[in-house]
Amino acid sequence: MSETPGHRLLLVHAHPDDESIGQGATMAKYVAEGRGVTLVTCTAGEMGEILVPGLEHLAADQDDTLGEHRRGELDDAMAALGVTDHRFLGGFGTYRDSGMKWHEDGHAVAADEVHDNAFWHADLTEAATHLVAVIREVRPQVLVTYDEFGGYGHPDHIQAHRVATYGAALAAVPSYRRDLGEAWDIPKVYWGAMSETRMRAGLRSLRDAGDTTTFEGMDPDGPLPPFVTSDDNLAAMVDAQDFHEQKMSALAAHKTQITTDGPFFALSNNVGSTAWGIEYYRIAKGTRGEVGDDGLETDLFAGL
């Protein structure tokens, strides 16, 4: 029986690929350092768009088998990051991707028609209790999920935030569902974030290089979408540039959702490892530990 790592990180994400986009480099870095990394994915991404020619038949309005395909993509992405503990909330197929549409203001909202089994319709206590079981088993010191808007308004991201927040609270209650194990109070909770300063610098580099299509419509000096966070809200910055290639490999594994000539790779190719190898966080619970010269923690486990 392998020894339980002293530091344990739990991430709660909505769909396969969200984890690699948001915290792929951090995950790879912590695995390499011998820390425990557990990923809980809430849906299989059944309603995602399909970017691979020839696989359109997987779509929800055709064979409706995209979820199973993305399950394989997630396996490949986690292999690239070295993560061996990844699960679906309540088990694969318990909750379905809710889908989304774009609001005229530029953020995501719930689709006009939502499947009966959609995660957006999940009973909050039931879904959170599935997470309680994982929390009490893994006993993480750090939890990472989305902010209350899910970054850009996707209903599944918002629901993942709610489930993670409520699940963490319930897991700490000694008298709640004793059958799921001994209570565990997660010391630190973070919300993934994108630095405004870093995003503007990246956009400026792209525009200076003549690239006007990557993140089309975004002006380095203009308004930015809601997933970009003012730097004064940031609490931690994990420099995992040495694991930039692992993150890029994980992104490439999500072939139906992310293309190697898309914005993530364009920004990476133009700006270098700083584009996606440095990941930012807002603290939602707990006390910050030691910080660097910029006032940010460099390790999510700082102070523990």
Rank of each mutant, 00 (worst) to 15 (best):
E3Y: 11
H7M: 12
H7C: 12
L10N: 09
V12Q: 10
H13Y: 10
S20I: 03
G22W: 12
G24N: 06
K29F: 02
E33D: 07
G48E: 02
I50E: 04
L51A: 06
H57A: 11
T65I: 05
G72T: 15
L81T: 07
V83L: 04
F88R: 02
L89I: 08
G91D: 13
G91T: 09
G93M: 00
G93V: 08
T94C: 09
H103G: 13
G106L: 13
H107E: 15
A111R: 05
D112L: 10
H115L: 13
N117Q: 15
F119T: 08
W120F: 14
A122E: 05
T125I: 12
A128N: 01
R136H: 02
L143A: 07
V144P: 02
T145M: 04
T145L: 01
Y146S: 04
G151R: 03
P155F: 01
D156C: 08
H157T: 00
V163C: 01
A164F: 03
A164T: 08
A164N: 07
A169D: 14
A169N: 09
L170N: 11
A171D: 06
Y176N: 10
Y176D: 05
I186Q: 01
P187Q: 03
V189S: 12
S195Y: 08
R198M: 15
R200W: 01
L203E: 03
R204S: 08
L206K: 06
D208N: 13
T212L: 13
T212W: 09
M218V: 04
N233E: 15
N233W: 13
L234H: 07
Q241W: 07
E245N: 06
S249R: 15
T256H: 01
D261W: 05
G262M: 07
G262F: 04
P263W: 05
F265P: 02
G272S: 09
W276C: 09
R288P: 14
D293F: 14
D294W: 05
G295V: 06
L296D: 07
E297T: 10
T298E: 11
F301Y: 04
L304P: 00
